[in-house]
C-alpha cells in the first residue's frame, strides 16, 4: 500500500502544470496579508475553509437574579466541531455556510455513567454585503443575514422515566433563526476597532424534544426568545500575529411553548415560560496568526463575566450554561 501511495504521489507531482483548472484566477481580488487590513468580507473569487473546534466546560449557570450558581456534582462538556465555508461571490458580497457537529458529555451524580453523545448540530448559512469600504486605512461596513436551520438531533430518545433517563442529547432547538446585523471595522495603523450589532429572530416550531404529557407521544410547539447582540473588539497587529480582545453583550426574551393555532402565525398563542429571559456579558480574546495569505491559525477564548438566566434544559442554543469556551480554527483559503 505504501508503495502504491508513493507512486500515486509521483504521478500527481509529474503533472502539476496540467492541473490548470486550480490555478489562481486573474479575476480573484487581492487579499491583504495581515488581519488588521482585511475587510469584513472575503473578496471576490476567494474560497475559504475553516476547520475549527470549540470546547466549553461548564460547571454552573447564572441564576435568575444574576448570581453565579455552581452545580454540585455536574460537569457539562460541550464541544462544537465546525467547518465554515466562505465564498466571495462578487467584490461586495460573500456567502458562507457553517456545518457543525457536537460532542457532549454530561457527568452527573444522579447517573452511574456519564451521558455522552455525538451528532449533527444546526448548520448556519448567511450572506454579507459590504455597503462601504475604503482602503489604507481600511474601513469596512457590512450588513449581514444569517439563517440557522434546525437540522441537528432534536429527539431525546427514550424519555419515559424523566430527564435523567434520556438516551440522546438534544443538539437543536428544532426551530429556525434569522439574524440581521451590521458590522463595521476601522483601521488605525496597526490597530483595528470592530463593532457589531444584530437582532436574532427566533421562529416557533414543533420540536421533537418538547413532548406533551397527556398521551406522551405528541410534540409541542416552542419558541426560543428573540435575541439582541452587540459586540466590540480591538485588534492589534504585531507582525504576522494579531491579538484582539473585546466583549459581547447578549439579551434574550423569554421562552414560549404550547400548541399551534390556525392562521399564518401558528405560534401566536404560546405561553411564556416566566423568568426564562436573560442576558449575558462575556469577554472574548483572540490570537490570529497570518501564516500566509492562504492559511491562518485562530485561537480564542470566551469568558463569562455577568449574566442572568433560568436554566431548565441543557440546550446551549436555548439556555446557555456558564463556562469558559476555548476555540481553535485553521483557515485555508484558495
Amino acid at each position: 500500500m505504501t508503495r502504491k501511495l508513493i507512486l500515486l504521489g509521483l504521478v500527481v507531482a509529474s503533472q502539476p502544470a496540467l492541473a490548470g483548472g486550480f490555478e489562481a484566477k486573474t479575476s480573484r481580488e487581492t487579499l491583504a496579508a495581515r488581519e488588521v487590513e482585511r475587510p469584513l468580507i472575503l473578496g471576490k473569487g476567494w474560497l475559504e475553509f475553516g476547520l475549527g473546534t470549540d470546547v466549553k466546560v461548564a460547571t454552573g449557570e447564572w441564576s435568575p437574579a444574576g448570581e453565579p450558581v455552581d452545580w454540585t456534582d455536574t460537569t457539562w462538556l460541550y464541544t462544537t466541531e465546525s467547518v465554515r465555508v466562505r465564498y466571495g461571490i462578487t467584490r461586495r458580497d460573500e456567502l458562507y455556510w457553517d456545518f457543525n457537529t457536537h460532542y457532549v458529555k454530561l457527568t452527573n451524580g444522579n447517573t452511574d455513567e456519564p451521558l455522552t453523545d455525538f451528532g449533527l448540530g444546526d448548520p448556519h448559512f448567511g450572506y454579507r454585503y459590504e455597503v462601504f469600504r475604503s482602503r489604507a486605512p481600511l474601513t469596512s461596513i457590512v450588513v449581514l443575514a444569517d439563517y440557522k436551520a434546525p437540522l441537528g438531533n432534536e429527539a431525546p430518545g427514550n424519555y419515559v422515566g424523566g430527564p435523567y433517563t434520556f438516551s440522546r442529547v438534544v443538539m437543536s432547538t428544532g426551530t429556525p433563526d434569522v439574524t440581521l446585523g451590521v458590522r463595521g471595522k476601522r483601521q488605525f495603523g496597526p490597530v483595528a476597532l470592530t463593532l457589531g450589532a444584530a437582532y436574532v429572530r427566533r421562529f416557533s416550531g414543533i420540536a421533537q424534544w418538547a413532548i406533551e404529557t397527556e398521551y406522551n407521544q405528541f410534540n409541542a410547539r416552542v419558541k426560543p426568545g428573540d435575541e439582541r447582540v452587540v459586540d466590540g473588539s480591538l485588534l492589534v497587529q504585531l507582525g504576522p500575529v494579531a491579538l484582539d480582545g473585546g466583549a459581547v453583550l447578549r439579551t434574550r426574551d423569554a421562552f414560549k411553548y404550547g400548541n399551534s393555532v390556525e392562521g399564518p402565525q401558528p405560534g401566536a398563542e404560546l405561553k411564556t415560560w416566566e423568568g426564562s429571559d436573560g442576558w449575558s456579558l462575556d469577554s472574548v480574546f483572540g490570537l490570529t496568526f497570518n501564516a500566509t495569505r492562504g492559511v491562518d491559525l485562530v485561537l480564542g477564548a470566551r469568558v463569562p463575566l455577568r449574566g442572568e438566566d433560568l436554566q431548565f434544559w441543557p440546550l446551549e442554543d436555548v439556555q446557555p450554561t456558564r463556562g469558559n469556551t476555548y476555540s481553535g480554527t485553521v483557515e485555508f483559503r484558495y
Binding site: V11, V12, Q15, L18, A19, G20, G21, F22, E23, K25, Y87, I89, L95, F125, Y147, A149, P150, P176, G205, I206, S260, P266
Partner: peptide, 25 residues
Amino acid sequence: TSLMAPTGVPMIRLENDSRSNVSLS
C-alpha cells in the same frame, strides 16, 4: 489529472411540508 476549475452554484431553497412548517435550506 488535468482537471478543470470546479464550478459551483450556491442554492437557497424555501419549501414547506405543512401549512406552518416552512424550511429554508
